[in-house]
Simulated assay, not measured.
Amino acid sequence: MEFLIVTILLFISILIYFKIADKYNIIDKPNHRSAHTQITLRGGGVIFPITFIIFCLINFKETIHEYWVFGLGLLLICVISFIDDIKTLSNRIRISVHFISVMLLLYFTHTFNLFPVEAWPIFFIMIIGTLNAYNFMDGINGMTGIYSLITLLTLFFINKDIIHFTHDNFIIYPILASLVFLFFNFRKKAKCFAGDVGSMGIGFWVIALITLLIMKTQDYKYILLLTVYGMEVVLTIVERLLLKENILKHTEDIYTSF
């Protein structure tokens, strides 16, 4: 019953957001690099930070002490990303907030306690790079949602049957959010795209889960859960290079969707 109620709340939330996005013209206009050809609502991924808020409200006693650091990092990166969906921000502001959010993520996963200071920059680079990869691929119907859903389902299986590394609901809730998002995104004519807020939000959540798993097991093979998505990003970049596109033109391109 809990999960049914959560799913209904998520559907209501995203439908309300569609009304707001339509009223304030929060849209994604296709350009010569786009995988889509029609104007589409942007920011449907706002459902992911909303999901965390619902997660906290329903599981308040179990989550308030354990997950508030993660929540702060998630909300910070989602708020700045949502603002960027509406109005382009300077790279300095975005990168600064991303840095703070990643720092909170590493604190949440106890990475700072388990690794020497000289290893910290490596984690910052890897996490920020992975977040940008998530953001880079938004705009292809179903891609962000499907890859995230498969990864989350895999993490849920590992958590249930191999090694328990986090609260079950901390994985189930983003699974429900991914399903609701895919209902509107995974279709021939997408109703919405995740936008910066969505790709950064779900990317942040997935990275946090994988990092928790790695810290729990000290087994780095679990980073391979991101391999397929990473290969898609690499192949997309290679394709653009073959087409002689300047992928570094406008630094903000790595922070915005197609």
Rank of each mutant, 00 (worst) to 15 (best):
E2G: 05
E2T: 11
F3C: 04
L4Y: 10
V6A: 10
T7K: 11
I8A: 13
I8N: 00
L10V: 01
L10F: 06
F11G: 01
I12N: 01
S13P: 03
I16C: 13
F18E: 05
K19L: 08
D22R: 11
K23W: 07
I27H: 02
D28I: 04
H32C: 01
H32K: 14
H32Q: 13
S34L: 04
T37G: 00
R42T: 05
V46T: 03
P49G: 06
I50M: 10
F52Y: 15
F55R: 00
C56A: 06
L57A: 15
L57T: 12
N59L: 01
F60M: 05
K61P: 04
I64E: 01
H65C: 05
H65L: 12
E66I: 13
V69M: 11
L72I: 15
G73R: 04
I77K: 03
C78K: 00
C78A: 15
D84N: 02
D85N: 04
K87C: 09
T88F: 03
L89F: 03
L89G: 08
S90Y: 07
N91Y: 10
R92W: 02
I93F: 08
I93R: 10
R94L: 08
I95M: 10
S96P: 02
H98T: 11
I100V: 14
I100T: 11
S101F: 08
S101H: 07
L104W: 05
L104G: 08
L106P: 13
L106G: 08
T109Q: 07
H110G: 00
H110Y: 15
F112A: 14
N113P: 01
N113W: 00
L114N: 14
A119L: 12
W120C: 06
W120M: 14
I122L: 15
F124Q: 07
I125F: 13
M126E: 00
I127T: 07
I128R: 04
T130I: 13
N132M: 10
A133P: 01
A133N: 05
N135S: 13
M137H: 08
G139V: 08
I140D: 06
N141Q: 12
S148K: 08
I150N: 02
T154K: 07
T154D: 10
T154R: 00
I158Q: 09
I158N: 06
N159E: 08
K160G: 02
H164W: 01
F170D: 04
I172V: 15
P174A: 04
L176D: 10
F181K: 12
R187L: 03
K189M: 04
K191H: 04
A194N: 10
G195F: 02
G195K: 03
V197P: 02
M200G: 08
G201D: 14
G203M: 01
F204D: 09
W205Y: 12
V206C: 09
V206E: 10
V206D: 07
T211Q: 13
L212Q: 11
K216P: 11
T217L: 08
D219H: 12
L224D: 01
L226D: 04
T227L: 15
V228L: 15
G230Y: 12
M231P: 00
L235T: 06
T236K: 14
T236G: 00
V238W: 07
V238S: 06
E239Q: 08
L241V: 13
L242H: 10
L242Q: 11
K244Q: 11
E245N: 10
E245S: 00
I247H: 05
L248F: 15
H250D: 14
D253C: 07
Y255N: 02
F258M: 02
